[in-house]
């Protein structure tokens, strides 16, 4: 987990985001967003959807739950990334979904990419330095590691 991921769970600092996605309560946590679009969604959706929505909101706003969810997202994301490159997108989406704001989602996706590169280098062992010289193919690896999770994290814009 990266620094940006952990801070995302605890303390949004952007006032405009706070106004859009949630409000800080007396305990310092962030309450569910109450902007017009969310209200409209709640009005027009079924109870089960609203339950899911509530769970997602809690994951995004409760720091403890968020941390656990983020860890789980990273773990699952890494496992998926090991299996297929689409796993990088899926990982980014998971990280994005649990992020309180879109900006945090993108930063989370980027952080996940950095983590992937670190794990990738570790798996290569002594060959990591040599692999760094394999231009242009190493550009694909670095680009995929950073770009695909960020792309996946944009799912935060949808939900």
């Amino acid at each position: 987990m990266t620094a940006s991921d952990s801070s995302a769970a605890d303390e949004p600092t952007d006032e405009s985001e706070r106004g859009t996605d949630g409000n800080r309560n007396g305990n310092g946590n962030v309450e569910p967003a109450t902007d017009d679009s969310t209200r409209e969604e709640n009005v027009g959706t079924r109870p089960s959807d609203r339950r899911h929505q509530n769970v997602l909101e809690r994951v995004r706003t409760d720091s403890t739950v968020h941390a656990v969810a983020l860890l789980a997202a990273v773990a699952v994301g890494l496992a998926l990334s090991w299996l297929h490159w689409l796993g990088l997108i899926a990982a980014g989406a998971l990280v994005g979904l649990v992020s309180p704001t879109t900006k945090r989602a993108v930063l989370g996706g980027l952080g996940f990419g950095v983590l992937v590169l670190a794990v990738f280098a570790a798996t290569l062992g002594d060959s990591a330095a040599v692999a760094a010289g394999t231009t242009p193919i190493v550009y694909v690896a670095v680009g995929a590691a950073l770009g695909l999770p960020v792309f996946g994290s944009l799912v935060r814009l949808v939900r």
């Binding site: 990334s81 490159w85 990088l88 990738f120 798996t123 290569l124 692999a131 694909v140 690896a141 995929a144």
Partner: peptide, 29 residues
């Protein structure tokens, strides 16, 4: 976007060189 990546030439590149899953990296160690 996902669909485009999957069906385009990028898919072959990623299958070979994506970190962790790329087949080319099997040859690195």
């Amino acid at each position: 976007g996902v669909g485009g990546l999957t069906v385009s030439g990028a898919s072959e590149l990623l299958e070979s060189f994506a970190p962790l899953s790329g087949s080319a990296w099997d040859a690195a160690d």
